[in-house]
């Protein structure tokens, strides 16, 4: 009886994973397909060659990379300061701000996209790189705050006291003790922001404008004309890149936890 339900449980989990991962696996397999259609005709790297030869794709990819690096760096700076303020100081409205941060991480992207667009129109900022950058910083900052707050709360308050007791000023205590201990979490926050920014379609769609095309939206417009295997190749590269970054972030958060 127990054996039977164990087998059923295993089968059930297996089916769930198949359901979730099959599409990705199909894309990866067919990115190496010789032929154009969804019938395996042999291994070939031609779609990768074709993709790298496509100026528009490469240009959009470089734009996305630049945007993601800028946005995640800014979000990490803002988010880190915010996390420190929220955990280290007691002030009126702190709990509301705290809750607000969590709310932003779960608020629907479409709402964020539309509201950002409305604001940009209201204050008359022309859509383009600037609006994309602002939007991505808004998207990423709450995730950095949440990542870092968890880490700061685990930090022993006596460590700062010990540093000061040994003659360190408040600034020295931060530089010598707090910052090095938070560095893995800060790096993890950056990586998380990078992946969020790199594959955001919804918010970017509203605030992109013309003139600064980014990769996810480039793919989106290509798909409108039918899925070609070079998109499979591109998707495979993005998937692998994202997995590596997320694993790196997880690794950074786990180490140094003594």
């Amino acid at each position: 009886m127990a054996r039977k339900s164990q087998t059923l449980g295993w089968l059930y989990s297996f089916m769930v994973y198949v359901f979730m991962y099959l599409p990705i696996v199909v894309v990866i397999i067919f990115s190496f397909n010789k032929g154009r259609f969804a019938i395996w005709t042999g291994f070939d790297l031609k779609w990768y060659k074709l993709m790298f030869a496509n100026k528009e794709i490469i240009n959009a990819a470089l734009n996305s990379l630049f945007l993601a690096v800028s946005a995640s760096t800014l979000a990490t700076i803002f988010g880190s300061i915010m996390a420190l303020v929220l955990t280290r100081y007691r002030f009126i409205g702190r709990r509301i701000l705290n809750g607000g941060v969590y709310l932003l991480t779960i608020s629907p992207d479409i709402v964020m996209g539309i509201s950002l667009l409305i604001i940009f129109i209201l204050i008359q900022i022309p859509l383009g790189f600037t609006t994309l950058l602002i939007s991505h910083v808004v998207l990423c900052t709450p995730f950095v705050v949440v990542t870092l707050m968890g880490r700061i709360q685990k930090l022993d308050e006596d460590l700062v006291a010990a540093a000061r007791d040994l003659g360190a000023s408040e600034v020295q205590a931060f530089v010598q003790v707090v910052f090095p201990l938070l560095l893995p979490a800060i790096a993890a926050g950056w990586l998380l922001s990078f992946t969020l920014s790199m594959d955001d379609v919804l918010i970017s769609f509203f605030v992109q404008g013309s003139g600064f095309e980014i990769l996810p939206l480039r793919i989106y417009s290509m798909v409108k004309l039918g899925v070609k295997p070079d998109i499979n190749a591109l998707s495979t590269i993005m998937f692998v890149g994202t997995v590596i970054l997320v694993l790196a972030a997880q690794f950074l958060l786990k180490t140094r936890r003594n």
């Binding site: 010990a162 003790v177 090095p180 140094r256």
Partner: peptide, 10 residues
């Protein structure tokens, strides 16, 4: 000397 030592772990 702190109760939980507060040694710098890094």
């Amino acid at each position: 000397v702190f109760q939980n030592y507060a040694l710098f772990p890094h």
